[in-house]
Amino acid sequence: MYAQMVTSEATQDDPEKLAAFQARIDAGEKIEPKEWMPEGYRKTLIRQIGQHAHSEIVGQLPEGNWITRAPSLERKAILLAKVQDEAGHGLYLYCAAETLGVSRDELTEMLLDGRMKYSSIFNYPTLTWADMGAVGWLVDGAAIMNQVPLQRTSYGPYSRAMVRICKEESFHQRQGYHIMMKMAQGTSAQKKMAQDALNRFWYPSLMMFGPSDKDSVHSAQSMKWKIKMNTNDELRQKFVDQTVPQAEFLGLTVPDETLHWNDEKGGYDFAEPDWSEFFDVIKGNGPCNTERLAARNKAWDDGAWVRDGLMAHAEKKRTSKLAAE
């Protein structure tokens, strides 16, 4: 769930073409890059895939924050592999977005100057090693909830990228849960750390699914186009139902006093996150928005001479090869 509140673009295409397009989607066909698509479909997808890609890239930072402090060689190796996977996911997704006629550099510029967003969750700090567990367990767990159905999304390149990504995400979630298990079975300080991580990451994880359906006005068109497969509340419910027993198994307490099983609906009743906090984070006022964007901008600016240098070298090689021919 790395794309939140993606506004569907209005579309002003020929109604006949639109109807034929919708019929293909309803029949479960995949739309491929060179085929006709409504302008609104294309723009909405660029926004959604771009936001997803940016989330993978910015998402390296909170976990990268602990690579140099990982408590064992094995944990360091696993965390490195995980963050490397995330960069790889970013790469597939940028490639998928490029098939819609926008370049990776253009998308990057839009991230860096704030025109495009990334998931709110990455604006929260990772303060202890238990946060590496909580991020894997809860954040990747929430991401999987959204991404598994997206394997069936109507746009071919996006759907194929999701298939690859989902395989790796389930490994990520397992390693996160494994960290939590070690901590929950560990010393009293480790248990305290684990509980503290759950306390801080529970509500931000629920926010990953986006605002409540009653306030989510942009979903209908995206769902019709099969860009969005489930509503925010459906996914949030599924996440809570899956996660609460896992917390119980760990012996940790979900920080929600109202939480209880509702036999009638066959799921948990739970407290909504503080949506004003969510909108603050989206607006740029989360605990780490400034640092995250500054880190990405610095990487981009400091790396300009490297990109220019390598391009210049490639150009020299091309010219000398041409001259030799």
Partner: peptide, 24 residues
């Protein structure tokens, strides 16, 4: 591994993480 997430281009981020991973 200190570079993680801060490299000049995405491909370099991946390559640096990969190198660090091999060395660890």
């Amino acid at each position: 591994s200190e570079w993680c997430g801060h490299a000049p281009v995405l491909e370099e981020d991946i390559a640096l993480a990969n190198t660090a991973l091999d060395l660890i």
